[in-house]
Design a binder for these strands. Structure first.
Lengths: 223, 223
DNA sequence: CGGCAAATTGAGGAATGTCAAACTGTGTGG
DNA sequence: CCACACAGTTTGACATTCCTCAATTTGCCG
């Protein structure tokens, strides 16, 4: 999952279409805390999230970290470059994953339709990342947070007791490292949004969206 | 061109290998100032830069702009998502371009080897963009500038009169919009690097790298 | 109940942005 | 050929955002 920006041109593309489960596409489950792969590993498999949440990270020697993306249902992770993984990937929420051989992406003999779909997913990834650039480079902390919540709200918002809410399985520092902020700024910005009655923070992991329109407006920003 | 980060794991991957010119791959030339495509256009062609420099940009309604990438020789631009372009692309320096049909990327019937190469280029793009995230999200202005110059130095540095120099065909605000800074900050940071004798700014478009090692060190940062 | 890690809050500071002025180089028209 | 205009760049002064460091607070697990 990247933070994309609503535009006139494009409807938010749905995450890579989830082709119906077929006999030939095995699934696996992984528990929270386990790692799917590390930076530098040879890519053997691609994973499509069916349920659960993944986290992709990249580390600098000095400890600075960037959360590259979160893997939500529909997302595909593990695209190789030079045959290798360029991020670490671990599981935030127990996950069911569809597994594809790397060759299914890289070779079109065998299953051309699957090959095509994985390729399209990779291309969608590129454009989503371009949007994310805009966000990292040009948005304020409030806009970043609002964009992030808005995307989650659209993709995995849940209706409970007539409240539209978001579950955040990641820590504040995950969010910070994803958006290019600090945990303190994330925290402060959330309380501000709470004080302006846009959201309500039920508990650390549960955000109720009181005014979706205001959230969207804030995410677009009015500089 | 993205700003990637030197790591232990990977040598800087050369930009997508430039397969030898073959009869079947037509070239075209475009003059500085002309546009190759606009955001929202249907993708008909992919372009590999042979010579010259391209600029890919994305615009927000309120005028904020992100330069997504610069296209230097070897780079391939125009990857579709949902069949459409998601950036504008124009020419900074008169360019020779190899042209590929979109179908060469999306279909493996016809020219499987070319298909494979374009796919690998797309995958390389993803990993380069991941590095760029780290840069946008986690680096200081000085580190950003140093990283940017370092990458250009490695890729297109020229030796002239025993001086290793970089030609910058883009404006300060292009650089700023690429790195998530303002023109003023770019300018100030350059003068600082000049004062600390890391670079010399011959003229607006010409930077002499006096101490490549110091440039690299600065780009990695020592926070 | 106590201890611990994560989150929040606060105070202060550093980095970067904003706005405005001065400078530079380049092209144009007299 | 010079003078001027203009756009891009640089510099300066100041404002703002966000970060840093430290102190609480909260929630969770033994």
């Amino acid at each position: 999952m990247y933070v994309t920006i609503p535009t006139e041109h494009f409807e938010t593309l749905p995450p890579a279409a989830l082709p119906a489960r077929r006999p030939g596409t095995p699934e696996t489950t992984r528990n929270a805390g386990s790692y799917l792969f590390f930076e530098g590993d040879e890519v053997k498999w691609l994973y499509q999230v069916v349920s659960g949440v993944l986290r992709l990270t990249r580390l600098l020697e000095d400890g600075r970290r960037q959360v590259i993306a979160f893997g939500y249902p529909g997302d595909i992770v593990g695209f190789p470059s030079g045959g290798l993984h360029h991020t670490d990937c671990d599981v935030l929420v127990d996950a069911r994953l569809r597994v594809f051989r790397r060759s299914a992406l890289e070779s079109c003999v065998g299953n051309p339709e699957l090959h095509r779909q994985l390729l399209q997913a990779a291309l969608g990834e590129i454009s989503a990342m371009q949007d994310h650039f805009m966000m990292l480079g040009r948005k304020s902390a409030a806009e970043k947070l609002a964009s992030f919540l808005h995307v989650l709200f659209e993709r995995v918002g849940e209706e409970t007791d007539g409240k539209r809410q978001i579950v955040l399985p990641m820590s504040r520092s995950d969010i910070a490292d994803f958006l290019g902020l600090t945990t303190e700024t994330v925290s402060r910005t959330l309380t501000q949004m709470r004080k302006s009655r846009i959201i309500d923070v039920e508990d650390i992991y549960r955000v109720v969206v009181l005014r979706p329109d205001a959230l969207l407006k804030l995410s677009v920003g009015n500089r």
